[in-house]
Design a protein around this nucleic acid. Structure first.
Lengths: 343, 343
DNA sequence: CAATTTTCCGAAAACGTTTCCGTAACTAAT
DNA sequence: ATTAGTTACGGAAACGTTTTCGGAAAATTG
């Protein structure tokens, strides 16, 4: 059974197509009696307007696109939750695109979306992105509003929803120092990302404030591969047995650190204290419980979507000034305890 | 700058719209010279065809819909990963809908998708779904192919991708019994779900095989609320101090059990052994490491999507016979150790 | 060279909706 | 009774593609 369309409704009701359309859209120039008649039949026949015809005519897709590196990651899945919630309440649909951290995919996905498929885009950029963000400019040229969240792109004139990454990096490092760590490894993802840079700047500032010189050997960058990361961390810990603290700017590196420490027989927190950016809600159940900087992931997604919809609905261009910075929370647990404590 | 359309390309090239269209679609009746000319200009002007005009004309949306209870759950996010991978490689787009386990949302989402917005749908049903699945029949009536995965809907004639839930339930229970548990609580979600039923049947069969009578008091159903669940589990453990094993058919109940045990001072696994269905890749890092039944979540998503695309691309109706059952894996860790062992 | 086929392209219809414009019937005002 | 204004609806264009049909020019054949 094919779905019903306006013409069939019109014929059945002995009305014109335009009248039926306006009745269903509750226009002022259709009598109440006709509206009732039309709606009754529409309900009875399970009429749903063809979204593509509507979109074509109105030049509105009622759809937003979300481009993220991955979804199997608590931060992003919580953010999607927030995004979907806002979209749904506005009657919008959500298209999901996963870059898997590959720059080329991001480029082709953005190009795809620039064709009018979506009314707006939310982006968290891939970590091995080039410094070339011209693909994102294409959206601007096409007047498609964009909002960045978390992994933002500084060079593009669009609102950004981020967290207080510099402060968080500072506080995390400060906390390790307070707990007695002196040689603190910094595990991160691509340095090209502004969030990485800020977290690192916080780290550097906290070290400097304690009069500790920065040691480039203590920097380690994720390879986007679990096995390689564990290996690299083990190598680092073996090469530098004086390391007594680890600051991971990304959850996966903390998990890899746990494995590395276990493989090497290093006790957390007695030998090495670990703190990490993380949105794992079960961080408390780890052995030992992980001290985290927890980002308000759901709110980040929600706020980014809200900003986007302000533009979409009021049809106003977005400005960088609408950017928001939310606060992350430092949750202290056993992995940074100053003396061995129960997990 | 508005995006270019066929008419503008045609004008610029002194060709007709239809020629340009066929040139871009590489039709046989356009000369190579013309094709080259057209493509050159199209590339130069960043032409992307309007997807809604195409979809309207071709009655093909190049889009699939995915309806799932939630995304902040490793099983579903891994499944989405598999789904997105298959969709992308087929040039398709993915619309995501989250029911948040609410039946009414599921109904309205399905109705929305029945309007031709998507060429196919992948569904994992909400756990508090009624026994009324007529909304899903609507898709069949509209000739929109549907594939269920994991949380399937037995009453609907569509392919289903599941795991060996009965076997897994049996093996999980058997494992607890082997490790010495005798009073095994069964924590589950909605009994109306067939996967819950099968896991429970496996549980019952394993008990029967060991000559242990089934005790209905040991059944506990999730309230879809973390705090309530923890409370309920504590109450159960307090009321039945003889409980020495917990079989959670869903990850969240295992996490709640960990909290409950910690709150009550029950040692895992000495006092209570715990096994759970779970896709947490860090189960090994928990305190104690959690013994799990791990589902091949990525493959489930991938296979479901593959089956769906078989139908979409060849335009053939789907049959229940295309259903697949994948195997889950029992990963034994410390939470079910027969004597206290390091986590 | 005439007849036929092949090559290449244009005109126009179609997809289902929204919206602009026109108008008939009716009401109200002069 | 004529005009002006309102109400309620129909006709048709428009959105940007794809596709069917047809046809002129070029190439091939006898």
């Amino acid at each position: 059974m094919k779905s019903v369309n306006l013409k069939q409704l019109a014929q059945e009701l002995s009305l014109s197509v335009s009248t039926v359309s306006r009745a269903l859209n509750d226009r002022y120039d259709i009598s109440q009696a006709t509206k009732d008649r039309v709606r009754a039949l529409a309900n009875q026949l399970d009429y749903e307007p063809n979204p593509y015809a509507s979109s074509l005519r109105q030049n509105k897709s009622k759809t937003i696109g979300v481009i993220i590196p991955e979804v199997a990651n608590h931060f992003f899945s919580l953010a999607i939750n927030g995004i979907e919630e806002v979209a749904r309440s506005n009657g919008y649909h959500v298209l999901i695109y996963l870059t898997h951290e590959e720059y080329q995919r991001e480029v082709s996905m953005v190009r795809l979306l620039a064709s009018g498929r979506v009314d707006g885009v939310l982006v968290s950029v891939a970590n091995n992105a080039d410094s070339d963000f011209s693909h994102l400019d294409l959206l601007g040229e096409r007047n498609i509003p964009v909002v960045f969240f978390d992994r933002v792109c500084e060079g593009v004139a669009a609102p950004k929803v981020t967290t207080d990454d510099y402060d968080s990096g500072y506080r995390a490092t400060r906390h390790l120092l307070d707990q007695g760590s002196r040689v603190i490894a910094h595990l991160t993802i691509a340095e090209s990302l502004s969030i990485s840079q800020r977290r690192m700047q916080g780290y550097l500032a906290a070290l400097a404030a304690s009069g500790i010189a920065f040691d480039p050997e203590l920097l380690l960058r994720s390879q986007n591969d679990k096995v390689q990361d564990v290996k690299a961390i083990q190598d680092l810990l073996a090469q530098r047995p004086d390391i007594d603290g680890i600051f991971a700017t990304v959850e996966s590196m903390a998990m890899s650190s746990y494995e590395a420490c276990r493989n090497l027989g290093r006790d957390i927190p007695a030998d090495v204290k670990i703190i990490s950016f993380s949105n794992l809600e079960i961080a408390a159940l780890l052995a030992p419980a992980l001290t985290t900087i927890t980002q308000p992931a759901y709110n980040i997604g929600r706020e980014a979507a809200r900003i986007l919809f302000q533009s979409i609905i009021k049809n106003r261009p977005l400005s960088v000034a609408q950017s928001q910075e939310l606060k992350s929370e430092l949750v202290i647990r056993a992995s940074t305890a100053s003396r061995s404590a129960p997990g």
